[in-house]
């Protein structure tokens, strides 16, 4: 891979070291050509053109979509970690156990994307949960419902933006778990509302990345640049 200057070469070297890490190498082997994409993403991190760099760039192509998912999973995982650390008043044993499960699932998703993206991953986001009252069941479950429904719609909307069938399957493996969460949280708030909000055809919602960040932006302090994500 040709490089322009020493700092680019350094970044490529870092990426290559990461790829030699065993679990990451397995992942890259599985995904085949993705390694070239990741190297490119790493090499392009130090962009010569500062005007295209307003905020953390999620990147382009499938790597961009994986970073998009990684950003969303960071929000969810941090939220449920806080919920589990400071449970709302009146939480039942069953709620505590299942919210603990959800935290584990979201942490697993976040760490999976981090490992998968390796050198191509965006940094940890700075989050702002000050609008959430963690001692209030209504506030916590209302936020959880919003996050889960948002996550479902985000993955549903991202499907068509993914080029690789392997990544598409991975997104599919995660989105149905988010939908299981969403239904459970909705039922906790109001029994029987597990699938309210479908259209007349009985279809769930899908949202574009810009629609998703218009909602999720409330909870993210880090400025994100989503302009390079695929649009179809």
């Amino acid at each position: 891979m040709p490089t322009k200057n020493s700092s680019d070469r350094e970044l490529v070297a870092v990426a290559e070291v990461n790829i030699k890490n065993l679990s990451r190498r397995n992942f890259l082997g599985y995904l085949g050509g993705a390694s070239a994409l990741l190297l490119t993403a790493a090499a392009c991190k130090k962009d010569d053109n500062p005007t295209s760099n307003s905020g953390t760039d999620l990147g382009s192509g499938d790597v961009g979509i994986l970073n998009y998912a990684y950003a969303l999973e960071q929000i969810e995982a941090a939220f449920y970690t806080k919920v589990f650390e400071s449970p709302y008043s009146g939480i039942t044993a069953s709620e505590s156990a299942l919210l603990g499960d959800i935290r584990d699932h979201e942490v697993a998703h976040r760490e999976f994307f981090k490992a998968a993206l390796a050198a191509g991953a965006i940094p940890a986001l700075e989050l702002d949960f000050s609008s959430i009252n963690f001692s209030s069941r209504d506030s916590v479950l209302g936020t959880a419902k919003a996050f889960e429904d948002l996550g479902v719609s985000a993955y549903n909307g991202a499907g068509k933006l993914i080029a690789s069938a392997d990544y598409l399957l991975l997104a599919g493996k995660i989105v149905s778990v988010e939908a299981r969460h969403a239904a459970y949280i909705r039922d906790l708030i109001m029994p029987g509302t597990f699938a309210d909000g479908l259209d007349a055809n009985g279809l769930d919602m899908s949202r574009s990345p810009s629609e998703v960040f218009a909602i999720a932006g409330t909870y993210v302090k880090t400025k994100l640049n989503i302009s390079n994500l695929p649009t179809s």
């Binding site: 549903n156 989105v175 939908a179 239904a183 039922d187 479908l198 279809l203 769930d204 919602m205």
Partner: peptide, 12 residues
């Protein structure tokens, strides 16, 4: 995909 997630809501 929009049907897939509804089936998961049902399953839940």
């Amino acid at each position: 995909l929009n049907i897939h997630s509804v089936e998961a809501r049902h399953a839940s």
